[in-house]
Amino acid sequence: MTQRWRAVGVLAAALFAVNVVARVIIKLGFDGNDTAADRVSLGMFVVVGLILAGVVFTWGKAVPAARWGADVSAAVAVALLLTVLVGPLLVGNNPFGGGAGLFFAQIWLYLVAAGAGVALGYLVLIALGRDYRSQQLRRYAERNVGKPRRVVRR
């Protein structure tokens, strides 16, 4: 059980680290340039989505969707809270300084990027037939193909 939560914590920390790196790049390199800051933020959302796609592709092979779905959801929730509430404080900004619109826009964009990454990873996994359920069905078919059905006499 501790390994399961350790993996969730590492994933949340990695997602938060991507946000921190993006915020530091924006603060040090593009402090006054809104267009460049928007591009760095977009890149951060793409990286978050790709990380989640890779994690879902890896975890989806070994465990059922309900388990990895709960783990990924927990990691995304923790990373989202850290990103929205703690991330701005690390670079000297107020989390609510941009107003409610910017605050909720960050939340929605993060959730969209996370959802797209999870969907991409899982759809590729299913398309390749390497997800947990497909592997179970393949093993079942291989196991039962060679045995004829036994006739039961009464």
Score class of each variant (00 low, 15 high):
D31V: 06
Y140G: 03
G99V: 08
V86L: 10
A79G: 10
A116M: 05
V24C: 03
S134C: 09
R154P: 03
A66C: 07
G87W: 00
V40G: 00
A113L: 09
A65D: 13
F96C: 04
A141E: 05
V48C: 05
A75E: 02
G129A: 14
V72Q: 04
G9A: 00
A77I: 15
V84H: 02
L11H: 02
L111V: 06
D31N: 08
R133F: 15
Y110I: 05
L111I: 01
Y132D: 05
A105K: 14
V91T: 02
G54E: 01
E142N: 04
G121Y: 07
A17W: 06
V86K: 01
V124C: 00
L102E: 14
W68P: 01
A119G: 12
Y110G: 08
G69E: 01
A36R: 07
G29A: 11
A100W: 15
A65L: 13
D31G: 05
V20W: 07
Q106A: 15
V8Q: 11
L128Q: 12
D34C: 01
A141W: 05
K147F: 15
L123T: 15
L11I: 08
M1L: 14
R130M: 12
A62H: 14
G9L: 02
A14L: 12
G99N: 02
A37F: 08
V145K: 06
Q106T: 12
G43N: 01
W108F: 12
A53T: 08
W108I: 14
R4W: 11
D31T: 12
S41G: 09
G129S: 13
V55M: 03
R4Y: 15
S73P: 10
I126K: 13
L50Q: 01
R150T: 10
A77N: 08
V10K: 06
G117F: 04
G99P: 04
V55N: 08
A62T: 15
V46Y: 01
L80S: 04
G92D: 01
V8M: 07
W108Q: 04
G99K: 07
V56M: 01
G49T: 06
M44P: 00
V86M: 07
L120G: 03
G98L: 04
G101F: 14
A12W: 06
A66D: 14
D34H: 12
V78L: 05
R23E: 15
N94W: 00
W59T: 05
G9V: 07
A7P: 05
R150K: 13
V63F: 11
A17M: 13
V112K: 03
F30N: 02
S134K: 11
G129T: 15
A62L: 10
L11W: 14
V124W: 12
A13E: 04
V18R: 01
M44K: 02
W68V: 02
N94A: 12
M44H: 01
D71C: 09
L123G: 12
A116T: 14
E142W: 04
A119D: 04
V21A: 12
A141F: 13
G60E: 11
L109W: 13
A7R: 10
V86N: 04
